[in-house]
Simulated assay, not measured.
Amino acid sequence: MGVVLGAVASGSELWDFVNVPGLMIVVFGSFAVTLVKHRWRNFFGSVRLAFSTTFLEKTQDPWELYREARQLADVVRKQGLLGLDRVEITHPFLRKAVGLAVDGHPPEFIEEVLLEDTHQYVERLQTAEKVFRGLGESAPALGMLGTLVGLVQMLNNMQDPSSIGPAMAIALLTTFYGAFIAQLIVLPLADKLQLKTQDEVRNRMIVISGILSMVKGLNPRIIKDVLASYLPELDAMEDLHESTPAQEES
Protein backbone atom coordinates (compact mmCIF):
# COMPACT_ATOMS: atom_id res chain seq x y z
CA MET A 1 0.00 0.00 0.00
CA GLY A 2 2.87 2.34 0.78
CA VAL A 3 4.45 1.69 -2.62
CA VAL A 4 1.19 2.46 -4.45
CA LEU A 5 0.49 5.60 -2.43
CA GLY A 6 4.10 6.70 -2.86
CA ALA A 7 3.84 6.29 -6.63
CA VAL A 8 0.63 8.31 -6.61
CA ALA A 9 2.19 11.07 -4.53
CA SER A 10 5.30 11.21 -6.72
CA GLY A 11 3.34 12.18 -9.85
CA SER A 12 0.42 14.13 -8.42
CA GLU A 13 -1.30 15.13 -5.23
CA LEU A 14 -3.16 12.48 -3.23
CA TRP A 15 -6.21 14.73 -3.26
CA ASP A 16 -6.47 14.18 -7.01
CA PHE A 17 -7.24 10.52 -6.31
CA VAL A 18 -10.14 11.25 -3.99
CA ASN A 19 -13.60 10.76 -5.44
CA VAL A 20 -16.23 10.37 -2.75
CA PRO A 21 -19.09 9.07 -4.96
CA GLY A 22 -16.83 6.49 -6.61
CA LEU A 23 -15.44 5.42 -3.25
CA MET A 24 -18.95 5.00 -1.87
CA ILE A 25 -19.96 2.86 -4.86
CA VAL A 26 -17.00 0.51 -4.36
CA VAL A 27 -16.89 0.32 -0.56
CA PHE A 28 -20.57 0.32 0.37
CA GLY A 29 -21.54 -1.56 -2.78
CA SER A 30 -19.06 -4.35 -2.02
CA PHE A 31 -20.25 -4.59 1.57
CA ALA A 32 -23.87 -4.68 0.45
CA VAL A 33 -23.26 -7.42 -2.12
CA THR A 34 -21.34 -9.48 0.45
CA LEU A 35 -24.14 -9.07 3.00
CA VAL A 36 -26.56 -10.46 0.42
CA LYS A 37 -24.34 -13.54 0.06
CA HIS A 38 -23.67 -14.08 3.79
CA ARG A 39 -25.48 -13.56 7.08
CA TRP A 40 -24.56 -10.31 8.76
CA ARG A 41 -23.32 -12.12 11.88
CA ASN A 42 -20.99 -14.24 9.76
CA PHE A 43 -19.81 -11.12 7.96
CA PHE A 44 -18.84 -9.12 11.04
CA GLY A 45 -17.50 -12.22 12.79
CA SER A 46 -15.34 -12.90 9.74
CA VAL A 47 -13.94 -9.37 9.76
CA ARG A 48 -13.02 -9.70 13.42
CA LEU A 49 -11.53 -13.17 12.90
CA ALA A 50 -9.50 -12.10 9.85
CA PHE A 51 -7.87 -9.11 11.50
CA SER A 52 -7.17 -10.98 14.75
CA THR A 53 -5.67 -13.88 12.79
CA THR A 54 -3.50 -11.58 10.69
CA PHE A 55 -2.29 -9.08 13.26
CA LEU A 56 -2.77 -10.57 16.74
CA GLU A 57 -2.68 -14.38 16.83
CA LYS A 58 0.50 -16.36 16.35
CA THR A 59 0.27 -19.84 14.89
CA GLN A 60 1.97 -22.48 17.00
CA ASP A 61 5.22 -23.76 15.52
CA PRO A 62 4.55 -27.44 14.63
CA TRP A 63 8.08 -28.38 15.70
CA GLU A 64 7.54 -26.88 19.15
CA LEU A 65 4.17 -28.61 19.36
CA TYR A 66 5.80 -31.91 18.43
CA ARG A 67 8.48 -31.54 21.09
CA GLU A 68 5.86 -30.68 23.70
CA ALA A 69 3.91 -33.81 22.76
CA ARG A 70 7.08 -35.89 23.11
CA GLN A 71 7.67 -34.46 26.58
CA LEU A 72 4.12 -35.28 27.60
CA ALA A 73 4.60 -38.83 26.33
CA ASP A 74 7.64 -39.18 28.60
CA VAL A 75 5.56 -37.97 31.54
CA VAL A 76 2.87 -40.55 30.75
CA ARG A 77 5.46 -43.32 30.56
CA LYS A 78 6.86 -42.45 34.01
CA GLN A 79 3.78 -41.24 35.91
CA GLY A 80 0.76 -42.36 33.90
CA LEU A 81 -1.97 -40.16 32.46
CA LEU A 82 -2.65 -38.54 35.84
CA GLY A 83 0.86 -37.13 35.75
CA LEU A 84 -0.24 -34.82 32.95
CA ASP A 85 -2.45 -32.97 35.40
CA ARG A 86 0.64 -31.39 36.97
CA VAL A 87 2.21 -30.27 33.67
CA GLU A 88 1.81 -26.68 32.54
CA ILE A 89 0.62 -26.57 28.91
CA THR A 90 0.55 -23.38 26.86
CA HIS A 91 -1.25 -24.54 23.70
CA PRO A 92 -5.04 -24.29 24.37
CA PHE A 93 -6.08 -27.18 22.12
CA LEU A 94 -3.39 -29.44 23.57
CA ARG A 95 -4.50 -28.41 27.06
CA LYS A 96 -8.07 -29.41 26.20
CA ALA A 97 -6.91 -32.75 24.81
CA VAL A 98 -4.83 -33.45 27.90
CA GLY A 99 -7.82 -32.60 30.11
CA LEU A 100 -9.96 -35.17 28.31
CA ALA A 101 -7.22 -37.78 28.66
CA VAL A 102 -6.70 -37.09 32.37
CA ASP A 103 -10.44 -37.38 33.00
CA GLY A 104 -10.26 -40.98 31.83
CA HIS A 105 -12.43 -40.78 28.73
CA PRO A 106 -12.04 -43.58 26.15
CA PRO A 107 -9.98 -42.89 23.02
CA GLU A 108 -13.05 -42.95 20.76
CA PHE A 109 -14.75 -40.21 22.77
CA ILE A 110 -11.60 -38.07 22.93
CA GLU A 111 -11.11 -38.36 19.18
CA GLU A 112 -14.73 -37.48 18.48
CA VAL A 113 -14.66 -34.39 20.71
CA LEU A 114 -11.34 -33.09 19.36
CA LEU A 115 -12.28 -33.69 15.73
CA GLU A 116 -15.60 -31.90 16.20
CA ASP A 117 -13.82 -28.96 17.84
CA THR A 118 -11.40 -28.86 14.91
CA HIS A 119 -14.25 -29.05 12.40
CA GLN A 120 -16.09 -26.11 13.99
CA TYR A 121 -12.96 -23.95 14.14
CA VAL A 122 -11.97 -24.75 10.55
CA GLU A 123 -15.52 -23.99 9.41
CA ARG A 124 -15.31 -20.51 10.96
CA LEU A 125 -12.00 -19.87 9.21
CA GLN A 126 -13.35 -21.10 5.88
CA THR A 127 -16.44 -18.92 6.24
CA ALA A 128 -14.24 -15.89 6.88
CA GLU A 129 -12.13 -16.78 3.85
CA LYS A 130 -15.27 -16.99 1.67
CA VAL A 131 -16.42 -13.59 2.93
CA PHE A 132 -13.15 -11.90 1.98
CA ARG A 133 -12.92 -13.68 -1.36
CA GLY A 134 -16.45 -12.43 -2.03
CA LEU A 135 -15.30 -8.91 -1.23
CA GLY A 136 -12.34 -9.42 -3.54
CA GLU A 137 -14.68 -10.42 -6.36
CA SER A 138 -17.19 -7.62 -5.76
CA ALA A 139 -14.80 -4.68 -5.37
CA PRO A 140 -13.35 -4.71 -8.95
CA ALA A 141 -16.81 -5.33 -10.41
CA LEU A 142 -18.27 -2.39 -8.48
CA GLY A 143 -15.27 -0.32 -9.54
CA MET A 144 -16.01 -1.05 -13.17
CA LEU A 145 -19.67 -0.23 -12.59
CA GLY A 146 -18.70 3.12 -11.09
CA THR A 147 -16.44 3.80 -14.06
CA LEU A 148 -19.32 3.12 -16.48
CA VAL A 149 -21.56 5.49 -14.52
CA GLY A 150 -18.88 8.18 -14.74
CA LEU A 151 -18.37 7.63 -18.47
CA VAL A 152 -22.11 7.93 -19.15
CA GLN A 153 -22.23 11.18 -17.20
CA MET A 154 -19.16 12.45 -19.08
CA LEU A 155 -20.60 11.60 -22.49
CA ASN A 156 -23.82 13.39 -21.63
CA ASN A 157 -21.87 16.58 -20.91
CA MET A 158 -19.41 16.95 -23.78
CA GLN A 159 -20.25 20.54 -24.69
CA ASP A 160 -16.98 21.66 -23.08
CA PRO A 161 -14.04 19.64 -24.52
CA SER A 162 -11.73 20.87 -21.77
CA SER A 163 -13.77 19.01 -19.15
CA ILE A 164 -13.40 15.62 -20.83
CA GLY A 165 -9.94 14.90 -19.37
CA PRO A 166 -10.80 15.61 -15.71
CA ALA A 167 -14.11 13.81 -16.08
CA MET A 168 -12.37 10.73 -17.52
CA ALA A 169 -9.89 10.74 -14.65
CA ILE A 170 -12.72 10.82 -12.10
CA ALA A 171 -14.53 8.02 -13.92
CA LEU A 172 -11.44 5.79 -13.84
CA LEU A 173 -10.89 6.31 -10.12
CA THR A 174 -13.59 3.81 -9.18
CA THR A 175 -11.73 1.09 -11.10
CA PHE A 176 -8.61 2.10 -9.16
CA TYR A 177 -10.49 1.85 -5.86
CA GLY A 178 -11.83 -1.59 -6.73
CA ALA A 179 -8.43 -2.98 -7.70
CA PHE A 180 -6.74 -1.36 -4.69
CA ILE A 181 -9.20 -2.81 -2.17
CA ALA A 182 -9.25 -6.25 -3.78
CA GLN A 183 -5.55 -6.80 -4.43
CA LEU A 184 -4.03 -5.01 -1.44
CA ILE A 185 -6.55 -5.63 1.37
CA VAL A 186 -9.24 -8.28 1.12
CA LEU A 187 -7.63 -10.95 -1.09
CA PRO A 188 -4.39 -11.02 0.96
CA LEU A 189 -6.54 -11.45 4.07
CA ALA A 190 -8.38 -14.33 2.38
CA ASP A 191 -5.07 -16.00 1.52
CA LYS A 192 -3.89 -15.48 5.09
CA LEU A 193 -7.04 -17.19 6.39
CA GLN A 194 -6.47 -20.10 4.02
CA LEU A 195 -2.91 -20.50 5.27
CA LYS A 196 -4.14 -20.26 8.86
CA THR A 197 -6.64 -23.05 8.18
CA GLN A 198 -3.94 -25.35 6.80
CA ASP A 199 -1.62 -24.65 9.74
CA GLU A 200 -4.36 -25.18 12.32
CA VAL A 201 -5.49 -28.48 10.78
CA ARG A 202 -1.90 -29.79 10.78
CA ASN A 203 -1.23 -28.68 14.36
CA ARG A 204 -4.50 -30.07 15.69
CA MET A 205 -3.93 -33.41 13.99
CA ILE A 206 -0.51 -33.55 15.66
CA VAL A 207 -2.24 -33.03 19.01
CA ILE A 208 -5.00 -35.57 18.33
CA SER A 209 -2.59 -38.26 17.12
CA GLY A 210 -0.22 -37.66 20.01
CA ILE A 211 -2.89 -37.74 22.71
CA LEU A 212 -4.57 -40.83 21.30
CA SER A 213 -1.18 -42.59 21.21
CA MET A 214 -0.66 -41.76 24.89
CA VAL A 215 -4.15 -42.89 25.92
CA LYS A 216 -3.68 -46.18 24.04
CA GLY A 217 -0.41 -46.74 25.89
CA LEU A 218 1.91 -46.69 22.90
CA ASN A 219 5.63 -46.41 23.50
CA PRO A 220 6.82 -42.76 23.38
CA ARG A 221 9.56 -43.72 20.94
CA ILE A 222 7.06 -44.43 18.19
CA ILE A 223 5.41 -41.00 18.42
CA LYS A 224 7.89 -39.80 15.82
CA ASP A 225 6.54 -42.41 13.41
CA VAL A 226 2.93 -41.54 14.26
CA LEU A 227 3.49 -37.82 13.62
CA ALA A 228 5.87 -38.20 10.68
CA SER A 229 3.06 -37.75 8.15
CA TYR A 230 2.32 -34.29 9.56
CA LEU A 231 5.97 -33.23 9.75
CA PRO A 232 7.77 -34.42 6.61
CA GLU A 233 10.79 -32.30 7.56
CA LEU A 234 11.01 -33.98 10.98
CA ASP A 235 14.35 -35.73 10.43
CA ALA A 236 16.04 -32.58 9.20
CA MET A 237 14.65 -30.55 12.09
CA GLU A 238 15.79 -33.14 14.63
CA ASP A 239 19.29 -33.15 13.14
CA LEU A 240 19.34 -29.35 13.34
CA HIS A 241 18.18 -29.21 16.95
CA GLU A 242 20.49 -32.03 18.02
CA SER A 243 23.54 -30.48 16.34
CA THR A 244 22.97 -27.02 17.84
CA PRO A 245 23.88 -27.93 21.46
CA ALA A 246 27.01 -29.73 20.26
CA GLN A 247 28.05 -26.71 18.25
CA GLU A 248 27.46 -24.43 21.24
CA GLU A 249 29.59 -26.66 23.48
CA SER A 250 32.40 -26.73 20.95
Rank of each mutant, 00 (worst) to 15 (best):
M1K: 05
G2E: 12
G6Q: 04
F17H: 11
I25A: 08
V27D: 01
V27S: 06
G29M: 02
S30D: 01
V33L: 09
H38A: 00
F44S: 08
F44M: 11
G45K: 13
T54Q: 13
T54D: 10
P62W: 11
W63C: 03
R70G: 12
V75I: 15
V75F: 07
I89N: 12
H91F: 07
K96S: 05
D103R: 12
G104S: 10
E112Y: 11
Q120N: 07
Q120P: 00
V122W: 06
R124N: 10
T127D: 07
E129K: 06
R133W: 01
L142F: 13
G150F: 03
L151R: 04
Q153A: 01
G165Q: 14
A167Q: 03
A167L: 03
F180N: 09
Q183C: 10
V186L: 07
L187G: 05
K196P: 00
T197S: 15
T197C: 15
E200P: 01
V201W: 02
G217Y: 06
G217M: 11
L218D: 15
L218C: 15
P220M: 00
D225G: 03
V226Q: 11
A228P: 01
Y230Q: 14
E233R: 02
E233A: 09
M237L: 14
L240P: 02
A246M: 06
